[in-house]
Design a protein around this nucleic acid. Structure first.
Length: 355
DNA sequence: GAAGCGTGGAC
DNA sequence: TGTCCAAGCTT
């Protein structure tokens, strides 16, 4: 706790805070690095200062604030939870782990983090940092999940009891500070690849370090290679406007807008692929023209090369919502009002260069 | 318990 | 260029 007090980073969601701000920061930080989150957090708080502001906004506005961040289900769950908090709890976050855990997007970690940091409840908050710190501190190699939960629970309970008996020192005393101290130690000292054991306040207690296992623990599962696909995207122009489509709400990039297209099947040219996809998704017949840009991109479970082509309708036609949530004709300038995945933002940038 | 879900930075 | 992996959650 002394180390944490002296080494904690000054982050926008620390200091003058509120349960809402803690919650938003925790959701943004899920699987996302602090440096990436900071500007998103600032913009999100300006646009949605309170829970009521999020709950009153259309999902499209929340997704727009999430644009480029990834794991877009987080934005949907945050929006859903905000609406529940307004209707069920009068706009105030429930103040216990058990109640928070029932809300969309509140898993064990996030419920534990908000309950401990915002409300002082003595519950554990086990993220990737804490897993790494505790795995090394206790040299845990098997039955990881059960042991870690047990240890983290005992630690936060004991820490809050001990510290409350000993208030004459200036150390932080809350379970929230305890949990954040473990996280901060993992983020700044107990690093995944090159742990800084020489400067670690726990190095003499750390069983992994004593046994020379700090580079081995925690044990990592073997990962398989990501498959690669060629994907095509149609930039369909008509009278200075472009056709964009909204992806289905559930699943990959749910609710985001894109230039329609899809995966190339074997024995198919990119041109044929586009014509098939646009017919299947929107019921349109197109002609494919010149290529615009090809983009390499890696997702969580596969890699793609995305090939964008100028296209036009063979005759006047109205799109149908066969496999898309919605569609819209928009100008280049209008596109700023829709949330796009990274790859499509690159296509838009290419279009602007030609414009 | 495992799979699906984004993106960017570090190395 | 490739790989790892980050303040995880839902199904």
């Amino acid at each position: 706790m002394t180390w944490y007090q002296q080494n904690r980073r000054d982050l926008p969601w620390r200091g003058e805070s509120s349960p809402y701000r803690v919650w938003v920061s925790e959701v943004l930080l899920q699987q996302t690095q602090v440096a990436t989150v900071v500007p998103y957090y600032q913009r999100f708080m300006e646009r949605f200062p309170t829970v009521a502001d999020v709950s009153a906004a259309p999902l499209a506005d929340v997704l727009k604030m999430w644009e480029g961040l990834g794991y877009y289900a987080r934005a949907r769950y945050l929006h859903q939870a905000a609406m529940e908090i307004v209707t069920q709890y009068g706009g105030q976050l429930p103040n216990t782990y058990a109640e928070l855990r029932r809300l969309p997007g509140f898993g064990e970690y996030t419920a534990g983090a908000v309950a401990s940091i915002a409300f002082g409840e003595a519950v554990a908050a086990i993220d990737g940092n804490v897993k790494r710190v505790l795995s090394r501190l206790f040299a845990i190699q098997t039955s990881v999940t059960r042991q870690l939960k047990q240890i983290a629970r005992e630690l936060v309970e004991q820490a809050s009891c001990l510290l409350s008996l000993d208030r004459q020192d200036a150390c932080p005393t809350s379970p929230g500070d305890w949990n954040q101290a473990l996280i901060e130690l993992g983020a700044l000292v107990c690093l995944p690849k090159t742990p800084r054991c020489a400067t670690c306040p726990l190095n003499e207690l750390c069983q992994a370090h004593q046994q020379g296992l700090e580079h081995v623990l925690p044990l990592k599962p073997v990962k398989k290679k990501l498959p690669h696909y060629d994907v095509s995207a149609a930039v369909i122009c008509q009278a200075g406007q472009y056709l964009i489509a909204q992806r289905p709400l559930k699943g990959m990039l749910g609710g985001l807008w894109e230039f329609p297209g899809g995966k190339q099947e074997s024995g198919e040219t990119l041109s044929e692929c586009l014509q098939r996809e646009i017919r299947e998704e929107l019921g349109l017949t197109i002609e494919v023209e010149q290529p615009i840009i090809s983009i390499k991109h890696s997702y969580t479970h596969f890699k793609i090369t995305l090939h964008a082509f100028y296209c036009h309708l063979t005759e006047p036609q109205t799109p149908q919502t066969l496999q898309v949530a919605d569609w819209q004709w928009v100008t280049l300038a209008d596109m700023a009002n829709f949330a796009f995945p990274r790859t499509d933002l690159k296509i838009i940038a290419a279009l602007q260069q030609r414009d």
